[in-house]
Design a protein around this nucleic acid. Structure first.
Length: 219
DNA sequence: ACCCAGGGTCATA
DNA sequence: TATGACCATGGG
């Protein structure tokens, strides 16, 4: 029987401390980062965000008024730059149509989530990252790291779908924005240090419960 | 030269 | 529903 979700949280928090996520100067920047980081390492996203800021483009109205070809050159480092330029425009259009971020913030989770998922280029993880980290809504973000770590610990979720994983976490945890925020941030920190595709298990705070640590294998 | 990175969409069967 | 192709850069 693998360690419980709450025990794993405690171990991660004790090992890494509060993460102060999401790293950004504004809610809009969180949303932009959520799109730019799709299947891309955060390092590359930071460079793209710096470019957008340097060109005074880090607000919805300015970004929407900026030609996609221009955005492409600024976000090039984040990869998929043609797609992502369109997706950023779609995000801006949504924000402005809804009356701005302050208006969005007053909406409920149940109203916002379907609306975000209807925006071109926003799928489950991007939507939930925006809801949790930009709009302070209580929803647990599932990403590739989350599945990889918990699979290695022996938690097989069926069906192996985004929604099932999310329900599994939320059913075991109090409905708390701060907790969801911290837990996902800790998972990412842990994954970057210890649970990449090639396991680096030296000093791993979860090694006691991790079969792949004992076997030095890759799952 | 390869594999990977904080996904999502679209076409096809 | 379920798989596969595709998107594209930069680091290890």
């Amino acid at each position: 029987m693998p360690a419980h979700i709450r025990q794993i949280y405690t171990r991660l928090f004790d090992a890494y401390g509060p993460r102060h996520w999401w790293p950004a100067d504004s809610s809009f920047e969180v949303m932009v980062g959520a799109i730019l980081t799709q299947n891309t390492s955060w390092r590359q996203v930071e460079a793209a965000i710096a470019q957008l800021k340097q060109h005074h483009c880090m607000d919805a109205a300015t970004m929407l008024a900026t030609p996609a070809e221009m955005l492409q050159t600024w976000i090039r480092s984040a990869g998929f730059f043609r797609q992502k330029a369109k997706r950023l425009h779609a995000l801006c259009r949504f924000i402005l149509q809804q009356g701005g971020i302050q208006t969005l913030r007053r909406q409920t989770l149940a109203v916002l989530r379907p609306q975000l998922l209807a925006v071109h280029g926003i799928g489950p993880e991007t939507a939930d990252s925006i809801l949790l980290y930009a709009l302070d809504k209580p929803i647990f973000v599932i990403d590739a790291y989350t599945r990889r770590i918990f699979r290695r610990l022996g938690h097989a979720i069926h069906p192996d779908r985004y929604h099932a994983w999310q329900q599994w976490f939320q059913a075991a945890l109090p409905n708390d924005v701060a907790l969801f925020n911290e837990y996902h941030a800790l998972i990412v920190e842990h994954a970057k240090r210890h649970c990449r595709m090639t396991a680096q298990c030296n000093g791993c705070p979860l090694a006691d419960d991790c079969p792949s640590a004992a076997l030095s294998s890759v799952i």
